[in-house]
């Protein structure tokens, strides 16, 4: 009887854990998708190439800070890539190569500024 109860408990715990692990396994994809959608919505609402480059530069600054605080953890690079892909998909104005270049410049500037601790 006690063994049966223990088994049931184990099964319940197993199920709960499985659900928890499923989310924990898929959090990167989830955040990748969320940021992809955010990037798409933001870029599709921008009405000129100039503003598009400024906004992607600001996103680059955010990404640089985000990645600098979480160095060498691959999933965070993937999440940031989701934002960039979403932005490129929704971008109606400007050249996509310039968008990628400006994003990298923004991220690099932000990374450097945080690395040197000019901003904390």
């Amino acid at each position: 009887m006690a063994g049966a109860l223990l088994d049931t408990g184990k099964m319940r715990m197993g199920k709960m854990n499985k659900k928890g692990f499923e989310f924990l396994d898929k959090w990167v994809e989830l955040f990748f998708f969320i940021l992809l959608v955010i990037g798409f919505i933001v870029s599709i609402n921008i009405g000129s190439a100039f503003f598009s480059y400024i906004v992607i530069f600001l996103f680059g600054l955010m990404a640089g800070r985000f990645l600098q605080l979480r160095k060498n953890i691959f999933p965070f690079y993937l999440i940031v890539l989701g934002l960039l892909i979403g932005y490129l998909l929704g971008s109606r104005y400007g050249n996509w190569k310039i968008v990628v270049f400006v994003f990298i410049i923004g991220a690099a500037v932000s990374w450097y500024v945080h690395e040197k601790e000019y901003i904390r």
């Binding site: 906004v55 600001l58 996103f59 955010m62 800070r65």
Partner: peptide, 16 residues
Amino acid sequence: WIYGLLIGLVLAFVSR
């Protein structure tokens, strides 16, 4: 809050 300010800037550019 740097992210908050950057989000504010992005929204200002997006919404003109």
